[in-house]
């Protein structure tokens, strides 16, 4: 095997490998974790976060604007403290409300931001004060069942 032939095939092999890597990088995957330099951090307290996970998306009007960076329990008030990293390009008013929503009936949970009307904008380290918790399906169902049972019980006693 001549050296130039080896060079040619090795070159082709390395090029193919790099093409495959680029394919995996550009076509198959997406860069979901935003670069650290272009984000700012806000926190929000929720009474119940349901099944929210770290790295879940933060959406406003359906557009992903950030990611959940950390979830901790506030030991004094026993509420969940959710830290979110938001994209620098998007700014929200200080009276923005945050709620935990579910994509579809059984889909992943995410944080939805609903902007308010305040002139001032949320800054790095600010806290979102208006929040509403996750809807926990089990609680919803049990509440529904109990109310049905109550109705049925009432009907029974009336007889």
């Amino acid at each position: 095997m001549k050296r130039t032939m080896i060079d040619f095939w090795v070159g082709l092999f390395i090029a193919l490998g790099i093409v495959a890597l680029l394919f995996l990088a550009l076509k198959v995957s997406s860069q979901s974790s935003l670069p650290a330099s272009s984000t700012y951090t806000v926190t929000a307290n929720f009474e119940n976060i349901g099944g929210l996970k770290v790295r879940a998306p933060v959406k406003s009007a359906g557009v992903v604007v950030g990611r959940v960076a950390a979830i901790t329990l506030d030991p004094q008030r026993y509420v969940a403290s959710v830290t979110m990293k938001l994209d620098d390009r998007y700014h929200f008013s200080r009276d923005t409300s945050a709620e935990i929503l579910t994509a579809g009936l059984l889909g992943e949970q995410y944080v939805g931001l609903e902007p308010g009307a305040d002139e001032k904008m949320l800054m790095n380290g600010d806290r979102i004060t208006i929040t509403s918790s996750a809807i926990v399906l089990e609680q919803l169902i049990s509440r529904f069942l109990f109310s049905k049972a109550d109705e049925g019980g009432n009907a029974h006693t009336e007889k």
């Binding site: 890597l21 995996l24 990088a25 076509k27 198959v28 995957s29 997406s30 979901s32 974790s33």
Partner: peptide, 19 residues
């Protein structure tokens, strides 16, 4: 097929770790 794949596969977490 492609868009679901792209939104679910994370570059750093999945591709880079695989490499």
């Amino acid at each position: 097929f492609w868009s679901q794949m792209q939104s679910a596969v994370d570059f750093r977490l999945d591709v880079v770790n695989g490499v």
